[in-house]
Amino acid sequence: MSATQLDTAAVSPAVPARTAGGRRRLPRVGLGWRLLGIAVVLVAWQLAALVVDSRGILPSPIEVARDFGFSFFDDAGLRYLGVKTPGYLPNLAYTIGASALAWAIGSVLGAVVGLLSARIQLFRSVSEPLFFVFGAVPALVLAPFFSVWFGQGLENKLVLVAFYCFVSVGLVAQSAAQAFPPSSEEYAATQGLDARARFLHVLVPGTLPVVLAGLRIALATAIAVQTTIELLGSQFGAGRLIALRASQGDLSSIIGLSLALGAIAVALDALLRAIIRGIVRWQ
């Protein structure tokens, strides 16, 4: 019998009953069950709308879908109200595009600063007030300041959304680096890696799964903050349309746009999860 055969059998990578932390994993819910859940909600909503029987209080899902489809590419009413791109599609694309750009910038900066702050005192001293003080201030409070500093255009929204992503990912990265086992970095040191090499080749890949999970939270944050500040004042975006429809009392359009934003966020999260699974396939 060879020495290798004497070793305990290799752990199968196939769906472990428990995670490394000893927690039991929830069983995967099939697509069919998810679709059934959505169908149940839609049916309940339709029935509730029939009971209420008032489009102004609770429009039915069929009405919401019809209104959404009607305004999807172009809407004369929106054009009349001065919207330069009077359709849901271009405005949703603007909101999601701006969110994604700010998310990418803020997340990368947050990951770098968060990891560095766990190892270099100077970075910690500078970043912790941003993480813990300004990060706790609601976007609605900070938005006017950013408008004054960066103007009314895209820049102020980009900076504000990027800031919240920076804080969100930065805190996750800092916590991940602080919880990272010291023995892994000590092992690298005894293999001859200097501090820079240990940071790049041990700390960064070692904390990557946690930091990437933080990106998912930051993506949802980005869409939510972007939409919120568009509500406050913007030329474009889904938030701007929701604000206009709210002023008209058009509940159907508000629900349609909100659900569309949610659906896009879920789709982007699923895409991000698939990408993360590919990157950290060693886990």
Partner: peptide
């Protein structure tokens, strides 16, 4: 130092 190689009690090898 690379000349002082060490094997640790716990799993310290890079999992990635």
């Amino acid at each position: 130092d690379a000349n002082l190689g060490m094997v640790f009690q716990q799993d310290a090898i890079p999992q990635w």
